[in-house]
Design a binder for these strands. Structure first.
Lengths: 298, 298
DNA sequence: TAAAAATACTCCATAGGTATTTTAT
DNA sequence: ATAAAATACCTATGGAGTATTTTTA
């Protein structure tokens, strides 16, 4: 059986006239009769009762017609789904992100993508940079928002955000009244930082600028979550240096101050990059990368 | 597009190897490659990523595969439904019946049919004989259980039940003690009968046997429902002559007595026939007629 | 008698086969 | 070097066309 048989059947069933049906199908009447006969032979039951002067559907033909219409509906649906998937309008994508991406790039990226491609299922995983690279390799996520550097040759990446660092001090701290803070004035302050392994690409520059300012920070506490660091600063446990986007997360008892003369020595050191597997270009990923990279250029 | 393309696609998608897929399909590899290419061209998107050494489904191909499997499922379903309908195992039938068929033929017929063909939808309509013939002609019912005679040449029918008549008398009536009743002893009794129009094929024989016994029954009350006649008899309103199957409907205050010497003069006068439209032989109807006629022969 | 489906045949488009090339491992 | 898909070209099945017959309203 081929779709041709079913197409012909549908036409004859609606026209109830082999001649007209053949005309509608742009074929001659005899081959149409032949095809319907072949179909009936294959099915093992009669579709039409022909009385040489009139054609009518048998009860089985009526029941079959209803079901055959479903086949064509399902066929249209199949093509539509395939086409949409090929365009990245339909599908799913699994995204990893570092906690600090929550304050800037991630919400913008998600909202834009959801607006443009509402039928794509997005799965989100908050993970550290190193876990993201592992998950990427294992195929558990398709994209990662990480803090460089990236180790491994099987990844492609693109920096999408560069931000400056700020100093976080408790609101009643003696430095809290200044507009900008000289790094050297933090030499004797207790520091709260994240463990180096978590984001060496962010940790190392922080240590480097401190040493350039003539001191090594005295780390009294390490925290995995940036939110926790901020909490501890507000609790007068010490000060910290963090990406400036942390200011988006409003928090009582903490003030953020720019580092003086940052542009020349310090620059925009906190970077976030988007990573994906080399040679993995699903349509959905392409659409998301397009949107994100296009955006990060602005 | 033809089912061939989809069949080939499914095989390649499961084998992920054109050579093996071709073997499985009993065709050579080049035409298989060609057909898949044609399919992709028609769909407007790629189904496979071929890297000369390995074949993989694209995301669109994966999505399409799932949907295509649905097509084949729907195809199987269509054939199955058509086949079952052609055998009368699936479908619907609308049956009319006279109230008095409720006591004998109808319940047996329904139970047997339901047991054998549980997926056929049965619609039941209690109607008088004349209404049934009208509904039959209008296509509102497919079969009727009626009391002959049948007027109209466009019907086929078959008598399926012949039963004798019995006399219904109140339990405290002076005739209630006898084993059988002589019709002539009813000459002066008040009669309760149904209107002639309702079932002339039953009414006329009743009048005829009374007249053969030398009297015309004094009808004091007419009722459409046989149940009502029985009620009135039990209320001492009079006596009646009814088909013997009325005894199935147990009722306080009424006794039923055979008519004496019934075999010779009276015979089995109350008949029920099954009627259908000439040349209307749906599979469902054929199955029901088969069962019923086969049964009535016993 | 006329309208419509079925038969009988003929033809050609295309599905499928064979031989070969290309390409990636 | 080899496995596997693509390309090129050929063959032949069967879908479609034409002419005719059959059937019944």
């Amino acid at each position: 059986m081929e779709l041709r048989h079913l197409r012909y059947f549908r036409t004859v069933a609606t026209e109830l006239h082999f001649g007209r049906a053949a005309e509608k199908l742009h074929i001659a009447q005899p081959p149409l009769s032949k095809q319907i006969q072949d179909l009936e032979a294959e099915l093992g039951f009669e579709l039409f009762t022909r009385t040489k002067r009139s054609v009518a559907l048998t009860p089985a033909g009526q029941a079959f017609l209803i079901e055959v219409n479903q086949i064509f509906q399902q066929l249209d649906r199949s093509i539509d789904i395939g086409r949409k998937t090929s365009r990245g309008e339909l599908g799913q994508i699994s995204i990893g992100f570092v906690g600090s991406a929550t304050y800037n790039i991630l919400p913008v990226m998600l909202q834009q993508f959801r607006d443009r491609y509402p039928h794509v299922q997005i799965e989100l995983h908050e993970l550290t940079t190193d876990r993201q690279l592992i998950w990427l390799r294992e195929g558990r996520i398709d994209l990662g928002l990480i803090r460089p550097p990236i180790i491994g040759l099987d990844f492609a990446h693109q920096v999408i955000l560069q931000e400056s660092l700020v100093v976080a001090v408790p609101i009643d701290h003696h430095l809290a009244t200044l507009d900008t803070i000289e790094l050297s004035s933090l030499a004797t302050e207790p520091f709260i930082l994240f463990p180096r392994e978590l984001a060496p690409g962010l940790y190392d520059p922080i240590i480097a600028i401190c040493q350039a300012a003539g001191f090594s920070p005295q780390v009294v506490q390490e925290c995995i979550q940036m939110q926790t660091i901020v909490s501890l600063v507000s609790a007068n446990m010490g000060v910290s240096i963090l990406p400036s986007s942390i200011q988006e997360a409003q928090r009582q008892g903490v003030v953020y101050k720019p580092i003086r003369a940052q542009d020349s020595i310090v620059g925009k050191l906190a970077t976030i990059a988007i990573v994906w597997r080399l040679n993995d270009r699903s349509p959905t990923m392409n659409r998301l990368l397009e949107l994100t990279l296009e955006n990060s250029k602005l």
